[in-house]
Amino acid sequence: MTYDAEATRQRIFEAAAAEFAEHGLAGARVDRIAAAARANKQAIYLYFGGKEKLFGQVVRAKVDEVCHAVSLDPRTLPEAVGRLHDWYHEHPELVRLLLWEALEADAGQVEGERERGESYRGHVDGLLATGLPDRTAAQDWLFTVLGLVAWSFVAPQMRRLVLDEPDAERAVARRRETVVELARVLSERSPAPEPHA
């Protein structure tokens, strides 16, 4: 049987995503990642350069997943917000990873910060092309929409307490309806995109 380096990398990556989502960077253990991936610890260092770099790559990949899955466009905001809400509901690991990153990042810097910032700047550029008045408005718009959707998944206990809904799925469905409606109102207040010549 031949050694498949790419399959090993993928197994390590998937095991690391689960480990980091559960335990954060500080609490994650390389030996548990290696055991879950059916790989040796040396492979983790060889392929990813260590636990901190692996954590950064996992977070970036998960953020990239949602960025590729859902396009936020002011012209179709309610539908996009609904899809984004569904994505977060189906992938709770992203919110957990982002929370761990916020709690554990050294001096406010995160692994791959420059590249991740460039990715968000690309989304802001896309929003500018839809007719938002300036870069600051587009940045604020993007950050607000992301927060509007993510809050239900950041603090699910608050969703339960505030909505007073014992059925978690019904609470999520209620919250989805609300954020989609708020997105509709927000999109109506956004400037209309300029027609293309």
Rank of each mutant, 00 (worst) to 15 (best):
E104G: 04
A129R: 15
K41A: 13
A102E: 13
K62I: 00
R135H: 12
L94V: 09
R75W: 03
K41G: 02
L103H: 11
E165A: 13
T130A: 11
L72N: 06
A137L: 04
T136E: 14
A37R: 12
L163K: 06
G27V: 05
Q42W: 06
F143I: 10
A15M: 06
D140E: 08
R83T: 06
A173E: 14
Q42E: 09
P133C: 12
R38D: 11
L128H: 11
A137M: 06
R174Y: 09
A43C: 05
M158E: 07
T8G: 05
E90P: 00
R32H: 12
A28F: 01
H91C: 02
P193L: 13
T76P: 00
T144S: 14
T136M: 08
V95Y: 05
R116L: 11
E6F: 04
R11L: 01
D106Q: 14
V70G: 02
W151A: 15
M158V: 14
M158A: 15
T178R: 08
E14S: 14
F13S: 05
A34N: 04
V58C: 04
V180G: 01
S190C: 15
R75N: 09
G117M: 11
L186V: 12
F55C: 07
E165S: 10
R29A: 08
Q57N: 05
P193H: 12
V63C: 01
T178W: 11
E19V: 10
R135T: 07
Y45P: 00
W141N: 05
Q10M: 07
P195W: 06
F13Y: 13
R114P: 00
F20Y: 13
V172Y: 07
D134A: 11
A69W: 06
R160A: 13
V58T: 07
V172H: 10
L97R: 03
L161T: 09
E111C: 08
R160P: 00
A150I: 04
H123D: 01
E177R: 15
R174Q: 11
W87S: 05
A16P: 01
G82M: 12
E101R: 15
K53D: 09
V59W: 01
G126F: 04
V124Y: 02
L94C: 05
Q57P: 00
T178D: 00
Q42P: 00
F55E: 09
Q139S: 07
R170V: 10
Q57D: 08
H68N: 13
D86W: 11
I12Q: 06
